[in-house]
Design a binder for these strands. Structure first.
Lengths: 354, 354
DNA sequence: GTTTAGCACTCTGGAGAAAGGAGTGCTAAA
DNA sequence: TTTAGCACTCCTTTCTCCAGAGTGCTAAAC
C-alpha cells in the first residue's frame, strides 16, 4: 500500500486521519476530537482506535494539543504534509471561473491603479487580506526622449522606457532656451542617454558638459534627472495591500493586539512580504515565514507575467488553518488569468517586433 | 459673570466642570466621578457640590451615564460645546512644528503618491487613521495635445490638462498612419478639443468626422478617447486612507466587530468620507456624521489648496473622545503647510502668467 | 439660597467555586 | 490489532459573592 519510492513514515490510515483533522480544523477553528473523526470516517473504526493513531501523530509532530484534554489541531509540520501530499487540487466551478474572469475585466488605466483593483478583487474572492506587486524582470532603461516646448519658461519632457511605459512631466526651465534648440537636445538625449543604466547616465551627463552651452546643459540635466527618477521608480516594486480588515472576522485575530500586529505589518512592509522564488506558486506556513509578524499566519503567493519584461506577484495572507486547497486553486487561476490578460498587450504593448 | 450676548445656559462653574470631565475622559476613556473632578478643581468645592452640578449637566444633555452608579462621560452635545467654546486652541511646540515641516519635505513625484505619503505622515502624527484626497476646483479641460510617432503602428499621445498635469500613453494604431500626417492631426486636436468639456469633446468628434480621412479619424477618436479618460479621472477624487490599524489600539475599538465595521468603511468608501464645506476646518462629532459607520466616531477634516486650481482635504478619524484640541491644532498646521508647499509650485506649476 | 457632610443605595468588575463537558490515556478484553 | 470502559484532566460557563466607586437624597451648616 505504500506508493512508489516515497518514504512511508505514515500509514494510509494515519494520513487519512491527518487529512480529516486538518480539514475539520480549517472549517471550525476548534481542536478536533477522536469521536468526531471516527464519525467523519464513516464509523469503520472506533474512536479509541483513532485515539491511538492520534497519539502517534502527535508524537511525530504532525498534530498538537492546546492542553492535555483537548482535541488535536494541526502543527505547521502537519499543514506542510497536507499541502505537499494530502491536499486535493480543487477544481473551480464554472461559476467561479467566470467570476474570476470577470474581476479581471477591468478598465485598465495605469498599472498601479490596476494592481490595486486586482488586490481588492483577490481579497474579496478569498475573504482574506491580499497583496500585489509588480517588478521589472531586468533593469529598465530609457528608450526614447522627447521635448515639447510650452513657452519660453517651460517644456514637457516625455520619456518612453524599455518596458514601453510612457511618462511625462512639465519642466520649468531655469534659463530661457529658444525652442529651436530643442531638437538638438532631443537628439543628444536619444543618442547618449538611451539604453544605459542609471550610473552610466550620470557619467555621460558629465562627459557631454563641455559640448553644449550652459543653458542647454542645465535643461539637459533636468531632463536626465527626471529620467533617472522615472527609471528608479520603475525599478522599485511597490506593494499594494487590500482587505486587511478581513482579518478581524477570523477567530484567531479577534484579539486586537494580534490583529494590530499583523495589520500594521501589512500596511507598512513594502519589502518583507514573501515572494515566490522560482516556482509559480509558493505556500508558506506559520514559522516558515521569515517575518515575525507572519509566524502565526500563512501566506499563499503566486506569480504572473506582465508581458515579457515584467513579473508580478499576488499573495493572500490568512490564518495557518487557511483553506489551502481553495486558496491555491483560486489564486493560481487568478494569476493565470493575469498572465493571459497581459499577453493580450492591452496594458503594456510588447516590444514592437524586435 | 455672563459674557457678552451669548445665551448663558451654563454657569461658569458648570462650564468648567464640563471641561474637566471631557479632558479627563479624553485621557482615560473612563467615566469621570465627582470626587476626581473636585480634586482636579483644586478642592475649592466639595464632591457633593459637583454632584449637584453634574446632575444638572446630565439633565441638560451635556453628559451621559453608562449606568446609574457610574461616573459621567460627555455626550456628543457636550463635545460640541467643548469644541465650540471651551476648547483652548493648542499651540504647537517648536519641536512639533519642525516635525510637521519635515514630514512635508518629501520628494514629490506624482500627486497621488505624495498624497499617500501625506496621509501616512498625518496618521503617524496624530496616532489616528487619516485620509487625504484632492479634487479640482472647477472642471478640468485639455490644454494641449501632442502626438509623437514611434513606428508605423504606434505613437505616443501626450496631453496637458488645464491644471497643468501632463499625461501620456502609447497608442497602437489600428490603421497605419504616415508620420507626416500627424502634425495636421495635432493642430486639429488643439484647435477643436482643448478648453472644452467632455460632452463637448464627443460632440465635436462627430462634427469633424467628414473633414478628414478614415484612418486619421480612427486615430483621432483614439486620442480623444484617451483624453476623455484622463479628464474623467482627473475630475474624480480618489481618497487615500492610512494608518487604519491604529484603531485597534484604542479601547473603544478593541471589540473586533466595531473595529471591523469602521475599518472596512474606511477602506472601501471612496465617497462617503466627510468633506469640509466652505470652512477651513470642520469637526464632526459622533452622530453628526452622515455615515452610519461613523456614528460612534469623530472626524476632524481640514482643506488646503493645491496651487490655484485644486483643493485637497485631509482628515483624521478617531473615537468621539479624541483630543480635539491637539488634533485640530496639528491638522490645521499640516494643512497650512501643504498649502504653502503647493504655492511653491514644485509639484504643480501654476498657469503661466495668464 | 448655596454648600456640605453623611449615608443608603446601585451597579460594575473581578475572584472564587462549582458544575458540566469534551476529550484523553490507559487497561483489559475481544 | 481493535475496541469498550472508565478514571482523570483541563477548559468553559455559570453563579455567587464582595469590594469599590459613584450616585442621589436629606438634613444641617454657612
Amino acid at each position: 500500500m505504500m506508493n512508489g519510492a516515497r518514504l512511508v513514515e505514515l500509514t494510509e490510515r494515519k494520513r487519512q486521519i491527518l487529512k480529516v483533522v486538518i480539514e475539520d480544523y480549517i472549517r471550525t477553528a476548534e481542536p478536533v476530537g477522536s469521536k468526531a473523526i471516527a464519525a467523519e470516517m464513516g464509523g469503520s473504526v472506533s474512536s479509541a482506535t483513532i485515539r491511538n493513531e492520534l497519539s502517534d501523530l502527535t508524537e511525530q509532530g504532525y498534530l498538537e494539543q492546546p492542553h492535555t484534554s483537548a482535541g488535536r489541531m494541526p502543527s505547521p509540520k502537519g499543514y506542510r504534509l497536507y499541502v505537499n501530499e494530502l491536499m486535493e487540487e480543487q477544481r473551480l466551478s464554472l461559476a467561479e471561473t467566470e467570476h474570476i474572469r470577470q474581476s479581471l475585466q477591468l478598465k485598465m488605466e495605469e498599472l498601479d491603479r490596476f494592481l490595486g483593483q486586482a488586490g481588492r478583487a483577490v481579497s474579496a474572492l478569498m475573504r482574506y487580506p491580499a497583496y500585489v506587486s509588480a517588478a521589472r524582470k531586468g533593469g529598465v532603461t530609457a528608450r526614447r526622449f522627447e521635448l515639447l516646448p510650452v513657452d519660453e519658461n517651460s517644456c514637457i519632457a516625455v520619456l518612453m522606457t524599455s518596458d514601453s511605459r510612457v511618462k511625462s512631466q512639465l519642466l520649468r526651465m531655469q534659463l530661457k532656451v529658444p525652442p529651436d534648440q530643442l531638437p538638438d537636445l532631443v537628439s543628444l538625449l536619444n543618442s547618449h542617454f538611451t539604453g544605459v543604466s542609471l550610473q552610466e547616465m550620470s557619467q555621460r551627463l558629465m562627459s557631454v558638459s563641455d559640448q553644449i552651452g550652459p543653458q542647454l546643459f542645465l535643461l539637459l540635466s533636468q531632463v536626465v534627472a527626471y529620467g533617472a527618477d522615472v527609471l528608479e521608480e520603475a525599478g522599485q516594486r511597490e506593494i499594494f495591500t487590500a482587505g486587511a480588515s478581513r482579518l478581524l472576522k477570523l477567530p484567531e485575530f479577534r484579539d486586537a493586539d494580534k490583529a494590530h500586529e499583523l495589520m500594521s505589518f501589512l500596511a507598512d512592509s513594502k519589502e518583507n512580504l514573501p515572494m515566490p522564488e522560482n516556482r509559480q506558486m509558493e505556500i508558506l506556513i506559520g514559522p516558515e515565514n521569515v517575518s515575525d509578524a507572519l509566524k502565526d499566519a500563512s501566506v499563499v503567493v503566486a506569480s504572473y507575467d506582465i508581458g515579457e519584461n515584467m513579473r508580478g506577484l499576488i499573495g493572500v495572507v490568512g490564518p495557518t488553518r487557511m483553506d489551502y486547497a481553495a486558496v491555491a486553486a483560486r489564486l493560481s487561476s487568478f494569476a493565470e488569468g493575469l498572465t493571459r490578460l497581459f499577453e493580450k498587450k492591452e496594458l503594456l504593448p510588447k516590444e514592437e517586433r524586435e
